[in-house]
Design a protein around this nucleic acid. Structure first.
Lengths: 342, 342
DNA sequence: GTGAAAGCGCTAACAT
DNA sequence: ATGTTAGCGCTTTCAC
């Protein structure tokens, strides 16, 4: 079948239905005034011609695309994949399109935003990716609201939904201390990411507050990925050279799972018997029987819901900066089998 | 800062650069004839004004959006999440935008396609979701190429890239037979999906060819998800009521992992000592030490690459049906630790 | 090589 | 309630 270059337009439908082109437009616009009789005739004609409104043309006049860009950095971390899925579902349920951008870890989101701006998306959601303050200004100048998810730009007022990472780190320190641990390893994630930094900070600070010596905590660079953490933990504890800590805290679940795999399968150690392990995020994968990971839950559904609500609010507003609120959601301990409990 | 309703347009740039609006357009169109002198002046003015071309307007005239819709059904299966990631990366690398659609499992993609058509995407990639033949026609009539990934519509000629699922099923039957298994369970996925059907068919047919009795294979509905398979396997083998098979073949890795978890952690059985387990897909999660799953590899990167290439070819062509080719990629055994081997 | 002018398909005043 | 009209910001002839 040859490709038909002439698409059916509202004009064709108008002609067939015997109404003006504007009436066709109205027939497809909920809430516009059009007699039921005419609306029906138009819809019938449209059906007959297989007419589908061209939202590109519509966007040109209305200056709204009904599309939200979701920019995601770390697709190697299942947590952010779950987050992406949640955003897609939530946005779709609200009748919006999702333009997805994956930015390479390490590289900044700035180029992606540039791309996104061409497409005149109505709003931007940014998760797990770097972003310069300059770009936020660029978006704001264009009236495009942007909501950060689990990221923030220190010293700038941008709408943000994030987990209480510092508080979470502290809670985990308390939990591990109570479980009897006195020596620790902490597996860090992206060195530039505020998320990892804050979790480590909360964890360490609480430990030192409780009187632990600085050398009671050994820090490992896990790179936020399973493989990165696996190699790093293997390098640190793959042999008996370095003394094992009582507990390992990984700033995300996927790295905690890597640590467990190294301990159990490379060293034949028992978790939590020989070493306790804890993560952060509460991804479904960590809940499975093979890991049964004790962790801190980030309420993804709620956070995503709030981020979208925040975006919608900005969308409706005239003054973007009025909504530069920061929503910090607490995390909650999920006790499972990788920490001893009496 | 107040939202500026008046965006910078090519007209503004033209004014500042002292050229015609058309020249601004040309300056941003590679390969168009414009003197270097003028192009430079335009670019400088554009920079100065923070001008970003409006691709909505451009799309209206060119009838191309440079956007590809990726429709994904089963986001519960990590395999398809990896596939989605691969598509996003590949498309982005080719300078295209990705409009992502997740359709609820069970519901048809038809509504999603309808949505997508409004946005005048240049092409559609469909993975792991139902699709009616009618809709394919709808797309073709509009000149929008569609490539199916690991799906096909029996009796219709649509461009498709898929794995040799029947052959894979056969190979797995051979492998398990050679490993000494004589009684089996097979965990099936989406009952309506050709992927699951074909894998089961290949597996069973080979078994029966080799003289096994029909009751040597016990079929379990796993619903394609971890949780679905976990519950189903628990129901079937959670107690000692039903005799264990020598081997379990799950039509995808995520269900195989669920089976392993039930066997090891609910029944304290050894895999592969007591029961062998095998999957299909070769997702990274299955390779980890906790599972070390023997499986069949689907070359995702290659398949995605080919699917996009196929789409690009259709995009460039006038006659869509000329490219209704079917690319069937073989899968390959990945021997790991959940099948006995001598 | 470059500008003027005519749309692309729709929405939003503005009339009636 | 409904038709007419004027754009939205670009690309693309068509002259020059």
């Amino acid at each position: 079948m040859k490709r038909t270059r002439s698409h059916i337009t509202s004009r064709d439908v108008a002609l067939l239905a015997g109404v003006s082109q504007a009436s066709v437009s109205r027939a497809f616009t909920p809430g516009s005034s059009l007699s039921d009789d005419k609306r029906e005739r138009v819809l019938k004609a449209a059906q007959q011609l297989n007419y589908i409104p061209n939202s590109i043309a519509s966007s040109l006049t209305t200056a709204r695309t009904n599309t939200i860009a979701v920019i995601i950095g770390d697709t190697d971390n299942p947590f952010y994949v779950h987050v992406l899925r949640a955003f897609m579902a939530t946005l779709q349920a609200r009748g919006r399109q999702t333009l997805t951008f994956a930015v390479q870890p390490g590289s900044s989101s700035d180029d992606a935003i540039q791309q996104v701006l061409r497409y005149r998306v109505d709003g931007i959601i940014l998760t797990a990716a770097e972003l310069s303050s300059r770009v936020v200004t660029l978006c704001h100048d264009r009236g495009i609201p942007i909501v950060l998810f689990n990221r923030y730009i220190p010293g700038r007022k941008v709408p943000v939904v994030r987990c209480d990472n510092i508080g979470g780190g502290q809670a985990m320190a308390d939990a591990l201390l109570k479980a009897g641990a006195r020596t620790f390893a902490v597996i860090k994630g992206d060195p530039m990411g505020t998320t990892s930094q804050d979790r480590v900070r909360g964890f360490n600070d609480r430990l030192f507050e409780e009187g632990l010596r600085r050398d009671a905590v050994y820090e490992i660079e896990g790179g936020s990925t399973y493989n990165g953490a696996f190699e790093a933990v293997l390098a640190a504890y793959g042999t008996t050279k370095r003394a094992l800590p009582d507990a390992i805290f990984a700033v995300n679940d996927i790295m905690a799972m890597a640590a467990i795999d190294v301990l159990r399968h490379k060293r034949e150690l028992a978790v939590p018997g020989d070493v306790m392990v804890a993560g952060f995020d509460n991804i479904p994968e960590g809940a499975r029987a093979s890991y049964d990971l004790t962790t801190l839950d980030q309420p993804v559904a709620q956070m995503v819901e709030e981020a979208v609500a925040m975006l919608e609010k900005s969308l409706a507003a005239d003054d973007l900066d009025a909504f530069a609120e920061e929503r910090i959601v607490p995390s909650e301990m999920v006790w499972r089998g990788t920490i001893l409990r009496d």
